[in-house]
């Protein structure tokens, strides 16, 4: 037994050391930095200060944090509403199932930047959508779509919808069909069967989908960057600019930590509110 424990630690040590050096220690460092004093241009004075957090909650940055939260929640909800019936259909598509799933994998594996770029072409003032609508005569002058919150929601939904679809699909696919038959035999109508059997049993998939959609959606900076030219900001933009433009490491670190806490809190809340006492439901 002792030998086994030693073997276990030995085999684990490479990956644990890697995570310690390149994840735990760096995150620890930004935690410390967020409480130090800013000397400007990335300079750090090791004197306790809450200035970065005060700044993060000032009107300038609080707006970006609030917008990120709001937009990513909206996008996640829309993704869920689209993904569930879509995944449900694919899971019941018989011999077409695998083919349809492959069709989902193409956008899933295509780089996010490329997929966002395609929406620039579509939503531009001189873009495909405007040209089309002008030609048909529905509009007289181009509608501004880029640079608006609408563009951001479209970008977030388009970017992260596959993350919602795949786990929901997996949970519907693995659903034990005998439960459905039992419900039917006992006289439940299809609607009731869906609401009381299918939906609760596939909830772990919805939960996983929600988490892995929401986390990248709230932290992404390229959606705002590319679809609004940086005119509208999300948390990711603020963090990037704090580190690379303003060289205010304290502010960047503080907002990074706030983002991490926000994400972890949402995950805990989601799991607490939705799962039974089965803690294997995450992923």
């Amino acid at each position: 037994m002792i030998r086994n424990i030693r073997t276990a630690y030995l085999m684990l040590s490479p990956s644990l050391v890697w995570l310690l050096v390149f994840l735990v220690v760096p995150v620890g460092m930004i935690t410390v930095i967020s409480f130090t004093t800013n000397l400007g241009f990335g300079g750090i004075l090791y004197e306790f200060s809450m200035e970065a957090y005060r700044l993060a909650f000032s009107s300038l940055y609080a707006k970006a944090i609030w917008q990120s939260l709001w937009w990513s929640v909206i996008a996640t909800v829309i993704c869920g509403i689209i993904a569930y019936p879509f995944a449900y259909f694919i899971a019941h598509a018989g011999k077409w199932k695998n083919f349809l799933l492959l069709l989902v994998m193409v956008p899933f594996w295509t780089n996010l930047l490329i997929r966002l770029y395609s929406w620039i072409i579509l939503m531009n003032n001189q873009g495909v959508i405007n040209n089309l609508l002008l030609k048909i005569g529905i509009i007289d002058e181009p509608i501004t779509m880029l640079y608006t919150p609408f563009a951001i929601i479209v970008g977030l939904v388009y970017g992260f919808l596959p993350f919602m679809i795949l786990p929901i699909y997996a949970s519907i696919e693995q659903l034990d069909k005998t439960y459905l038959e039992a419900a039917e035999d006992l006289g439940a109508n299809p609607v009731k069967t869906f609401l009381t059997v299918t939906l609760p049993l596939t909830f772990p998939g919805v939960l996983t989908g929600t988490i892995i959609t929401f986390v990248p959606a709230i932290s992404v900076f390229v959606v705002t960057d590319l679809l609004t030219g940086g005119r509208l900001l999300m948390i990711g933009n603020v963090i990037r600019d704090a580190f690379l433009v303003e060289m205010n490491w304290q502010l960047g670190s503080a907002i990074s930590l706030l983002l991490m806490i926000l994400v972890l809190l949402s995950i805990v809340v989601l799991i607490k509110f939705t799962s039974s006492d089965d803690d294997s439901s995450l992923l």
Partner: peptide, 16 residues
């Protein structure tokens, strides 16, 4: 690493 926002890891590594 599955749930941490990628940007947090990115800036933390930059600091390291």
């Amino acid at each position: 690493p599955v749930v941490i926002p990628d940007i947090v890891l990115a800036v933390a590594l930059l600091v390291l």
